[in-house]
Design a protein around this nucleic acid. Structure first.
Lengths: 127, 127
DNA sequence: CTAAACCTTGTCGTCAGCGTCAAGGCAAGG
DNA sequence: CCTTGCCTTGACGCTGACGACAAGGTTTAG
């Protein structure tokens, strides 16, 4: 499988695949003319990467999952390193959610106060 | 007030203040030697900017709030444009929170499945 | 006289995950 | 032979809010 086909099947671009390879995540043989030749199994790898990035992981976080897949597991999630990253990420996400909740609260109170202020001003003007 | 003092009083750096000025958010007179000379009131402006950035706003979002302060209001929140931005931001934050909630869910289920899988493997090995 | 501690403008670096050329080679169809 | 459509490497662009220089002027204290 050439890079264009893999890219399309994985729903991404050749540039992206080269980028992943450059960062040691995806592998390819080279055919005689220098073209990258991908195994079928790389499709799963690329999809795993994309799925994880999509959920907010960084490329470094993804590495253990790829290794886990290459080790022959049906899922990239089942290896100890992956589980560690998963746990860590959940904690991170929880923190962000908490923070955003607080932010939302603050914005909301700013908003209601602003509106209250406008009411007052309006009433004064009507006098 | 010179830039260093304002920076320290606002809990930021001279570089940052110049950056804000460059983007039309902060104003300063120039004294004879070319130094920036700030009014007391700019301290409030800078603090407003910092507070908003801190909650996830961009510099563009901040503009109406600064204008609102300069218009003589005690709070930057009370002007119509500011209120619009506040509403928009709340919606954005809600969206992000929802998304993160879903992500958290997915991570959690990945995690529990991975652990379940490991249990199975362990049991098989013990046989 | 000089050192210290301010200030000025200008420019490059940072982080992440690519997009977007540029310049060229290879393969196949008409 | 020529075009079309793949592929290759290399290198710059992008977004945001600055940090970190460089190279110089100013003012004050000793």
């Amino acid at each position: 499988m050439l890079i264009g086909e893999l890219a399309e099947r994985a729903g991404t671009s050749p540039r992206t695949l080269r980028y992943y390879e450059e960062h040691g995540l995806v592998r390819a043989q080279r055919s005689a003319n220098g073209y990258r030749e991908y195994e079928e199994s790389e499709l799963r790898v690329v999809r795993e990467i994309r799925a994880l990035l999509d959920v907010g992981f960084g490329l470094d976080d993804v590495r253990p999952f790829v290794a886990c897949l290459r080790a022959g597991n049906t899922s990239g999630d089942v290896c100890p390193d992956s589980v560690l990253v998963l746990r860590r990420k959940i904690v991170e996400v929880d923190a962000v959610i908490d923070r955003l909740g607080a932010v939302r609260q603050q914005l909301h109170s700013q908003l209601t106060q602003a509106i209250a202020h406008r009411e007052k001003t309006c009433l004064r003007k009507r006098k």
